Computed example of a mutant assay.
Amino acid sequence: MARVKIEHRLGIAAPAHEIWKLVGDLPGWKHWNPLYTSAEGTLGFGAPLTLTLALPGRKPQVIRPIVESWTPDELIHWRLSMLGGMVRSVRYIEIEKLTDTGCIFSNGEIFDGLLGPTVARSMRGTIRSGFAAMGEAVKARVEAAWQGREGQPT
Rank of each mutant, 00 (worst) to 15 (best):
A2T: 12
R3Y: 15
K5L: 14
K5H: 15
E7M: 14
E7C: 12
R9Y: 13
P15R: 08
P15V: 11
A16V: 07
H17M: 06
W20L: 01
W20A: 09
L22G: 11
V23N: 06
G24M: 04
D25H: 14
D25S: 10
D25Q: 07
D25V: 03
L26S: 04
L26F: 14
L26V: 06
W29V: 02
K30Y: 10
Y36T: 04
S38A: 13
A39S: 08
L43H: 01
T50C: 07
T50K: 12
L51H: 03
T52G: 00
L53F: 13
Q61R: 02
I63Y: 08
T71N: 07
T71H: 07
T71D: 05
D73L: 00
E74V: 02
E74M: 06
L83H: 08
G84V: 02
S89K: 03
S89F: 12
R91W: 11
R91S: 09
Y92S: 00
I93G: 08
I95A: 02
E96T: 05
T99K: 09
T101Y: 12
C103L: 02
I104G: 03
F105M: 05
S106W: 10
N107P: 03
N107F: 03
L115N: 09
T118L: 10
A120D: 09
R121F: 14
R124T: 11
G130P: 09
A133P: 01
A137L: 04
A137P: 01
K139A: 03
K139L: 00
W146F: 03
E150M: 00
G151E: 07
P153Y: 09
